[in-house]
């Protein structure tokens, strides 16, 4: 007898210790998210995966699945909150999709399409976030950073390098710190082959000289919406 819980009225099987997100993913059900990645422990910062569990809000990436729990996911109320949080991402950084070479491969953009976000709604913050082009193979454009920390985790857990760390406080201070006294990526042992070089869900960590190898229109999320891809990838 397998253990199950209800997700939007559908029975989802899970194994003890799995999070709601992991169980949903395995079943091919999409819960919107940005900072969660199947290969790494949950970070729980983007809050896009907020669901309602037995009537109470919680992050599905950090909450363990329990037998019999009733989870609401794609309700109008929750998607409305998610849309607002997506708008928050768009106004706190500088996201100009038409000029971004990550366009079409960007999880933020794809999730905004998925949730039918039509405008940024709030006034833009236009923060001043300098780019770092010092590294011969990789460009860092912090204008698009969504503070998911995936590069921090990948560099630490997979590459064993600690090239990145999250530092600072609040909207003005919080940013990625680079592991060198100059603060430049070129002065670290970062390499294009690092896991951290390909983990960024948005357009911060970009390999140089490859921007349009795959043309717009033929990219990951040009083919099918992000929610469909979760369905397709399910075992």
């Amino acid at each position: 007898m397998s253990l199950t819980f209800q997700l939007d009225g559908e029975d989802i099987a899970f194994t003890p210790g799995q999070s709601i997100m992991q169980a949903a993913r395995a079943a091919g059900v999409y819960i919107p998210h940005l900072c969660w990645h199947p290969d790494f422990p949950a970070h729980g910062s983007c809050k896009l995966c907020t669901v309602k569990v037995n009537g109470r809000f919680g992050s599905s990436c950090t909450m363990e699945a329990q037998a019999g729990m009733n989870v609401e996911n794609r309700t109008a109320e929750l998607d409305d909150k998610r849309r607002t949080m997506l708008q928050m991402f768009f106004v706190e950084g500088n996201h100009f999709c038409p000029s971004c070479e990550k366009s079409g491969n960007c999880a933020l953009q794809a999730t905004a399409y998925e949730l039918k976000m039509m405008s940024p709604h709030f006034d833009m913050f236009y923060p001043d976030r300098p780019v770092d082009a010092s590294h011969p193979d990789v460009l860092l454009d912090f204008n698009r950073c969504i503070m998911c920390s995936l590069c921090v985790t990948a560099s630490r857990e997979v590459d064993g390098k600690n090239v990145f760390a999250m530092g600072g406080r609040g909207i003005l201070g919080r940013r990625i710190h680079i592991n060198s006294e100059s603060g430049r990526l070129a002065d670290t042992d970062f390499a294009l082959t690092d896991r951290a070089a390909s983990i960024c869900p948005v357009g911060v960590i970009l390999p140089k000289r490859r921007g349009f190898d795959v043309p717009i229109g033929k990219r990951t999320y040009d083919k099918s919406p992000i929610s469909e891809q979760v369905k397709e990838k399910a075992p």
């Binding site: 729980g44 910062s45 983007c46 809050k47 896009l48 949080m85 928050m88 991402f89 106004v91 706190e92 709030f122 913050f125 503070m147 600072g168 406080r169 609040g170 909207i171 201070g173 919080r174």
Partner: peptide, 15 residues
Amino acid sequence: ESCGFCTPCRVGTTL
């Protein structure tokens, strides 16, 4: 004083 970790608080408190 928002630590900036989660989106709703980091951006919401400033909004």
